[in-house]
C-alpha cells in the first residue's frame, strides 16, 4: 500500500497540501497518484505570482500513457514553483511528498485546508476507487 502521511491534508483527486511554518501551503500529488500514473515525464506548473482559486486547474502531470490535471486545494497567490521538476520530473515518482512538490501558495483563506480529507479519509477514498 502506498504511503499516506498523517500530517498532510488531501483531495480525492490525489493532491496533498502541507501548511508550512511561514503560513504558505505546499502542494504536490500523492504516492498513490504517482504510482497510478507510472513514470512521470513532464510537469506543467502555474506561473509565479498567479492568483488561483481552490478547485482551479493549476498544472498538468504527464506520464507516457496518461496526463492528469492538478487542482489547487487552496486559493491564493503562487509564491514558489518547483523548478527542478522541469529537468527531473522523476522526483515526483521517487519522492512525492518532499523533493517532488509542485508549487507553494500564500493562501487567502486557510479554512479551505480544513475542508480537505485527512489521511484516513483519503485512504478510504482510494480503496473505494479500486473497487
Amino acid at each position: 500500500m502506498s504511503q499516506v502521511p498523517k500530517e498532510l491534508k488531501y483531495l480525492a483527486s490525489h493532491e496533498w497540501a502541507r501548511l508550512e511554518e511561514d503560513g504558505t501551503v505546499t502542494v504536490g500529488i500523492t504516492d498513490h497518484a504517482q504510482d497510478m500514473l507510472g513514470d512521470v515525464v513532464f510537469v506543467e506548473l502555474p506561473d509565479l505570482d498567479a492568483e488561483i482559486s481552490a478547485g482551479d486547474e493549476a498544472g498538468v502531470v504527464e506520464s507516457v500513457k496518461a496526463a492528469s490535471d492538478i487542482y489547487t486545494p487552496v486559493s491564493g497567490v503562487v509564491v514558489a514553483i518547483n523548478e527542478e521538476l522541469q529537468d527531473t520530473p522523476e522526483l515526483v515518482n521517487s519522492d512525492p511528498y518532499h523533493d517532488g512538490w509542485f508549487f507553494r501558495v500564500k493562501p487567502s483563506d486557510t479554512t479551505e485546508l480544513e475542508q480537505m480529507l485527512d489521511a484516513d479519509a483519503y485512504t478510504e477514498a482510494c480503496e473505494e476507487d479500486d473497487h
Binding site: 513514470d39 513532464f42 504527464e62 500513457k65 520530473p89
Partner: peptide, 9 residues
C-alpha cells in the same frame, strides 16, 4: 520493447 520513458524525458 522500446523505452518510452526515455523517449519522452
Amino acid at each position: 520493447r522500446l523505452d518510452d520513458v526515455k523517449a519522452a524525458r
